[in-house]
Amino acid sequence: MGRFRTTVQALLAVAASIVTTSAIGVRPGQIKNLVTFGDSYTDVVFVWDGGDPWPVYTSRYAHLDLIPFARSGATCSNNITFRPFPSLFESQLPEYFSQKGSLRLAPQETIYTLWIGTNDVGANALLTGNDDASIVDVSACMVNWVKALYESGARNFLFQNMIPLQTVPMYSPNAYFNRFWAEERNATAWSVFMTELVLSGNAITKLMLEALAPKLPGAHIGLFDSHALFTDMFKRPSLYLNGTVPLNVTGAVNSCVFELHGSSSNCVVISGSAKDSYLWWDELHPSEQANRIVAREMAASIQGKKTRWTTWLS
Rank of each mutant, 00 (worst) to 15 (best):
I302D: 07
L239W: 04
T188Y: 07
P94F: 09
A123F: 14
P246L: 06
V47L: 02
F230W: 02
Q108S: 10
L216G: 14
F193D: 11
R296K: 11
G51L: 01
I221N: 01
S40D: 04
S200D: 15
T310A: 05
M142G: 05
L64P: 13
L229S: 05
T310D: 02
V146M: 08
M208E: 12
C76T: 06
V168G: 07
N186W: 12
S87I: 00
G272C: 02
Y112E: 00
I221R: 00
V146W: 04
P28K: 10
L209W: 13
R292Q: 03
A123H: 15
F89G: 06
L247W: 03
I31M: 05
V294I: 00
F180S: 02
S72W: 10
A189W: 15
S98V: 03
G101K: 13
L223E: 05
W181D: 01
K275N: 04
D132Y: 13
V44T: 15
F82D: 03
G2H: 15
E151W: 08
I111T: 10
D276W: 07
P68C: 06
S102M: 03
Y61R: 07
A187S: 13
Y278M: 00
S98G: 12
L64E: 11
V8W: 01
V14N: 11
D232H: 14
L114Q: 12
K305R: 10
A182F: 15
Q303E: 06
T118A: 12
G122C: 06
